[in-house]
Amino acid sequence: MIIKTSDFVKSAVTKSQYPEDKRLEIAFLGRSNVGKSSLINALTNRRKLAKVSSTPGRTRLINYFLINDDFHLVDLPGYGYAKVSKSEKAAWGKIIEEYLMSSETLTRVVLLVDSRHKPTADDIMMYEWINYHNYDVVVIATKSDKVSKNDIRKNEKLIKDTLKLKPEHRLIFFSSVKKDGREDLINTLFEDLASK
Rank of each mutant, 00 (worst) to 15 (best):
K196P: 08
R182K: 15
L106N: 12
S102V: 12
M126K: 03
N187R: 13
D69T: 04
R46I: 05
K154H: 09
V147K: 07
L112Q: 09
T55E: 03
V138Q: 03
R108I: 07
E97S: 10
A90T: 11
A141C: 12
L185H: 08
L49I: 10
E128P: 02
K48L: 12
L39Q: 00
G57K: 07
S176W: 00
V34C: 06
L66G: 00
E25S: 06
S115H: 06
Y99P: 02
G181C: 13
V139K: 10
A194K: 10
T14C: 11
I26G: 01
D75E: 07
K36Q: 14
K146N: 11
R46M: 05
K83W: 06
R58H: 15
K118A: 11
K15W: 05
D114K: 11
L158V: 14
L100F: 05
K15C: 08
A27C: 04
R46D: 00
K86M: 03
I2T: 14
A42E: 03
S144P: 13
A50I: 06
E128S: 12
P19I: 04
F65R: 00
K4E: 15
T14I: 13
S16V: 07
L66S: 03
Y81E: 01
D180C: 12
I40N: 01
V137K: 02
I26E: 04
E98I: 09
D161H: 11
D122I: 13
I95T: 03
R58D: 13
Y64A: 07
E97D: 11
I26W: 02
D114A: 13
H169M: 14
I130N: 00
I130W: 00
S53W: 07
D21M: 11
N150D: 15
S54V: 13
D69W: 00
K89F: 02
M125N: 10
Q17E: 14
T105Y: 06
S37E: 10
D136S: 13
S148G: 12
L100W: 02
V138C: 08
L61M: 14
K4M: 13
N155Y: 05
K48H: 13
D145H: 10
T59G: 09
M125D: 08
E104S: 08
N41H: 04
V13M: 10
R116C: 13
V13Q: 08
V84E: 09
K157W: 14
L193H: 00
N63G: 15
R47I: 09
N45D: 10
F65E: 00
P56S: 07
D75T: 03
E98M: 04
L39A: 02
M126S: 03
L43S: 03
K154E: 14
K160P: 02
K178F: 12
K51W: 06
T14L: 08
P167S: 11
